[in-house]
């Protein structure tokens, strides 16, 4: 069985690397993007099983990315938002844009695994 593909979007290389290590350990295959615009380029021709995105990014932020992705008709794609915000307002905005759920940074790999298990078959 081929590994599930997860697209991670974060402008911080160290955060991307942390995610890559954690996700690879969990047996997923990882594709990375640096921001929303970059993620949309990657999504052109890619059908990931899950999208994990940061919110605050240059060029196109996480909210914009999620709206675009949903607008493209990818409605069944689970999207988890990586956020340091515990504010309800941010979560509300993420959900309004079409996010499936969130992972609050800093995350423990176990927490990441649990969150993924809840949105990915």
């Amino acid at each position: 069985m081929t590994a599930k593909t997860i697209l991670t979007v974060d402008d911080s290389p160290s955060m991307r690397m942390l995610l890559r290590i954690a996700l690879t350990d969990l047996g997923y295959s990882v594709v990375e993007a640096e921001d929303g615009v970059h993620a949309l380029e990657k999504l052109d021709g890619l059908e990931p099983d899950l999208l994990i995105t940061d919110i605050n990014m240059p060029r196109m932020d996480g909210f914009g990315l999620i709206s675009e992705v949903r607008g493209q008709g990818r409605r069944g794609l689970p999207i988890l938002v990586l956020t340091t915000e515990s504010s309800d307002e941010k979560k509300q905005r993420a959900r309004d844009a079409g996010a499936t759920g969130w992972i609050v940074k800093p995350f423990h790999p176990d927490k990441l695994a649990t969150a993924i298990r809840r949105v990915l078959h």
Partner: peptide
């Protein structure tokens, strides 16, 4: 479902 959610997975949890 528009947000990629899958209730079954939560029921499984």
């Amino acid at each position: 479902f528009d947000h990629g959610a899958e209730p079954l997975l939560l029921l499984r949890e």
